[in-house]
Design a protein around this nucleic acid. Sequence first.
DNA 1: GTCACTTTATGATAAATATCATAATTTATG
DNA 2: CATAAATTATGATATTTATCATAAAGTGAC
Lengths: 231, 231
Amino acid sequence: MSEKIKSPNCEICAFRSVLFNSLGIDGLGKMNTCKDQFRFKKGEVVCHEGDPIESIIYVHKGLIKLHKRISENQSQIISIARPFNFVGLLSVFTKTEFFYSITAIEDSSVCFIKKDCVLGEIETNGKFALDIIRRMSRITDDILESKFALSKKNLRGRIAHILLDFSENIYKTNEFELPVSRREIAELIDMRTENVIRIFSEFRKDGIIKINGHMIEIINPEMLQRVSSAG
Amino acid sequence: MSEKIKSPNCEICAFRSVLFNSLGIDGLGKMNTCKDQFRFKKGEVVCHEGDPIESIIYVHKGLIKLHKRISENQSQIISIARPFNFVGLLSVFTKTEFFYSITAIEDSSVCFIKKDCVLGEIETNGKFALDIIRRMSRITDDILESKFALSKKNLRGRIAHILLDFSENIYKTNEFELPVSRREIAELIDMRTENVIRIFSEFRKDGIIKINGHMIEIINPEMLQRVSSAG
DNA sequence: GTCACTTTATGATAAATATCATAATTTATG
DNA sequence: CATAAATTATGATATTTATCATAAAGTGAC
């Protein structure tokens, strides 16, 4: 089960300046009183589709996925959020219930800040309001841009794109452990599991990547980039 | 060319309550001084990709498309905005230049409100800030949800979906004039022009719709709904 | 009205992707 | 550690979609 951890004071949190640089000491103190931090092990569910939205959620450490059931045995991954990312922000101010589930795909540490607390701060602190607006904008811009880019690519291009994304934006190294199964990759970039596996194999045969289970090493990033752009 | 029209006072604008219900008389007055309203004829460009973002834009009357060049002879429609919709809100607070163009697809009347003016109001009026946040959230939620829904449908399902969208959400009648060419529909729902035309013909032969140029009459909405859900 | 140009229309074919089948490998579970 | 279940892997085939070709109908410019 998820484990509540002694909530570090926001004042000393390494992400403070990034997350709440518009809050004064007063505001930070207030946030602290309506904040909880939990650890989730890989695979643990942070929120279920349909749960009431009570908090704004952000990723302190780890990696979590936003996903949605679309039928009995199919689901769809909306996005993968990494540290510094808010997730609960998506629809938090327009909907009362999550339309997606949130699940840890790596051991993660997640902060919950009560929605009312944030709403109150927005109403009284214009700089903070603007900060939240910018943050929201960036989240949805990112999701939209990546979905638009992917929708124009063929299967090889999509796999190349997602591998480069993990390598460059998340792990910042050419060798990393995929946090998701082939099936989840399929759900993220809108293709079939068999084809994800097949194209991984192709890339291996082409000498673009090395595969060892979930460990991936990109040995020819330039070619991967070309495949991503061409597809 | 686009024609500047005598800007009606926001105080008496029919959409006031919808657009700025959180602004007092003071705020409305301020908005009025940094607002311009223009008419655009069908086909006229409201903004070019790359233009500096100086204003928040909303549709007062008509229909406009947000679109993006993706190659020499291909573009992509991000969304179609109708009255009550803000458009300039997308990325207005995170980017300095439009990453999309805006073009009228019906004779339209469009309001431009200087960005600085809105930013100032956000900082001093918390209720207004919250209003803007909700509005942004709704825009991006809508775009995301419709793109996600479409990506899971086959070609017939996508055409059915878009026809129902025009019929139910925009024109609110079973008979309407398509504001876009078959090609633009293709750019909106990510398929090829030939296939859009082909499936229109199929639907006609199936007795689902009647076609007369750009006039479409949906004669069997239930079946169209079934095709949309099944695809 | 005529000519060039674009849009709509339809068929034939090629290419991309999904589906089905089957097996090897890995992971979970008692 | 043995068995079941899920994941990875690969081939064969079917289906969907894109591409190419061609023509008719509509639209704008002069």
